[in-house]
Simulated scan of single mutants.
Amino acid sequence: MKKILLLFTLFGLFQTAQAQFGLRAGFSSANFEDTNFKPKSGFHVGAYYRAEAGFFSVEPGIQYAMKGYETNNDQTGAKIDEQLSYVDIPVLVRLNFLPALNVFAGPQASVLVSRKYTDATGTNTSTEPIRGYDVAGVVGLGANLPLGINAQVSYDFGLTSLNYFNTDVKNRVFKLSLGYDF
């Protein structure tokens, strides 16, 4: 009964809220936690739906995100490039401190859609060596700019092991983004 009452309360709250659909894209720098690998540069692009209710807003979204790492083989020095492509589904809660500034945090579920491992011997696209999903936390700072444009800086930190070649590693991703509210 309490859950049903909570659902009706939240539904009523968001019925009076302003809602905005938007698109977001930007630069990503990803790596695995606690490794000596170099960060992998990439991009992310997606859509979001923001329901604002005064001081806070809830923003579910979906985006394509490139992750991975770069390193060199210890014996040969040859370059190794690991590109992981995910579909991220964040659900962010934003606290709007000023009309133009907000902080946000929330959970993010991710599904691995492709893998491209390249070294001196060739390319491997099998997703077998890595877990097919990731669960992460997201924190960041956002700014609302004129003309419906917004900017944000965020950090994704994996909460589950990717079990990469039976090794306990987690994704870490720094993102710079620009968005547009319709």
Results as ranks from 00 to 15, higher is better:
N124F: 03
G61K: 07
P99M: 06
T9Q: 01
S154C: 08
P146C: 14
G106S: 07
F11C: 13
E82P: 03
N166Q: 00
V169F: 10
G54T: 06
F97C: 07
F37H: 12
K116N: 15
L147G: 09
E52M: 14
S110F: 02
I149K: 15
Q63G: 07
D134P: 06
A100R: 07
L159K: 08
E59N: 01
K3A: 13
L162R: 04
A51E: 09
L5M: 13
E33G: 07
K170A: 13
G12H: 07
A136Q: 06
L101Y: 07
G140S: 04
N166V: 04
I80Q: 08
S126I: 03
F55D: 06
G54K: 07
D81I: 06
A19C: 15
A17E: 10
Q108C: 01
V135D: 00
A136F: 03
N73D: 15
L98R: 04
T160I: 04
L84V: 00
M66K: 13
S154V: 13
A136T: 02
L159W: 11
A51C: 01
T160V: 10
V103N: 11
S41R: 06
V138F: 00
L159S: 03
F32L: 12
P39S: 13
L7F: 14
Y86I: 04
P99G: 12
D168F: 06
G12R: 12
V153H: 10
T71C: 08
Q108P: 05
R131K: 13
Y86G: 08
D134E: 13
N171Q: 02
E52D: 10
F56L: 15
A143D: 10
G132C: 03
T35V: 14
R94E: 12
G68A: 10
G132Q: 06
G68N: 10
N73K: 02
G122M: 14
L147C: 13
F27Y: 15
L10P: 02
Y155E: 00
L141E: 00
L10Q: 03
T121V: 13
D81M: 01
N31D: 12
Q108N: 11
Y48A: 04
G142L: 09
G179S: 06
D156M: 11
S85L: 08
Q75W: 03
A47Q: 11
E52P: 09
G122Y: 05
I4Y: 05
N102Y: 12
G77Y: 05
Q108V: 10
N31E: 10
F11Y: 15
L145K: 15
I89C: 00
G137T: 01
G140M: 04
V139D: 04
N102C: 01
A53G: 00
K3L: 11
F43W: 04
D134G: 05
K2S: 00
A65H: 02
L7T: 00
Y86K: 02
T167H: 15
K79M: 12
L178R: 01
D134A: 10
L95V: 14
N102H: 12
Q18Y: 05
L176D: 03
P99H: 08
A25G: 15
A100E: 11
I80H: 00
I80A: 07
E59Q: 15
A17W: 02
G140N: 00
F56E: 00
K3P: 00
L178Q: 09
L92I: 08
G140H: 04
Y69T: 09
N72H: 10
A47V: 12
S114E: 06
E128C: 05
